[in-house]
Amino acid sequence: MSTRNRKTTFAGTEGELNAMTQELDEFHHDTGMSSLWAGVSNMIDGMRGAEVATRPTSRRTFLMGAGAAVAGGATLLAVGSTPGLAAAATRAESRLHRADAAAFPPAGYKGDLAVAAVAASLENLAVYAYNAGLTAATAGKLGTVPAAVATFATTAKSQHTQHAAAWNAVLKSNGKRAITETNPTLTPTIQAAFAKVTDVTGLAQLALMLEMAAAATYQAETSQLKSKAAIGLSASIEPVEMQHIAILYYVMGMYPGSQTTAGSPIAFSSTSAAA
């Protein structure tokens, strides 16, 4: 019997749950990252009595995992903080060497945990791209940057950081290391696209490519994941990536919703861009 199918429940009393909830709230106030903790808390709630990947889960391990994941994200951002897009692409190359596409997800990451690793790597790539874009914009390399576009990039980057932290919390709570690498399959594509970006429109198109890959991946995985909590987490993130897509289209002066390359709105989102 596969270990990932083993059924587990939260191994604590209701009182312990309440205490951990209070701890969660305090941690939340300390960090000011309300959305992250709300999302992770919801996921933990969803795991009560639900099937999880490998071993019993406590709120404490989730909290610690999430905190470590945030730290990992900060490290990644430090790597991605470059003065321009060309330099960002060079740094991305160095990350690619650390995350070999053929060896990703790492050995031992099976089933839902493999999906979590891929999801975290995609989120890392998005954070990295937005960070590099913002750095280039600040340096004046993209011409005039409308205020709304800068706000979009800053907010989207923050949300992708929270998504990565949530997936890494899942990994840490299951005894796996957090994924701090960018997705090795898509990183070369993003590198190539970066090299061509000279203005805000180009950056928006690049962001659109990333958001579409993330949304499509979550859409595809929502029906493939086994753990109810993982399904819930994936389903709670996909619509947010889709919202990023809608607003990106809007700021690019296009119809604000998923569409064909010819610009025709579509009623059902596609999984063709899934990683």
């Binding site: 979550y218 595809a220 929502t222 996909e238 619509p239 889709m242 919202q243 809608a246 998923s258 989102s269």
Partner: peptide
């Protein structure tokens, strides 16, 4: 549901 929820979120 996954193919529709994101479209509604875009709305």
């Amino acid at each position: 549901f996954a193919s529709i929820m994101g479209i509604e979120a875009q709305h």
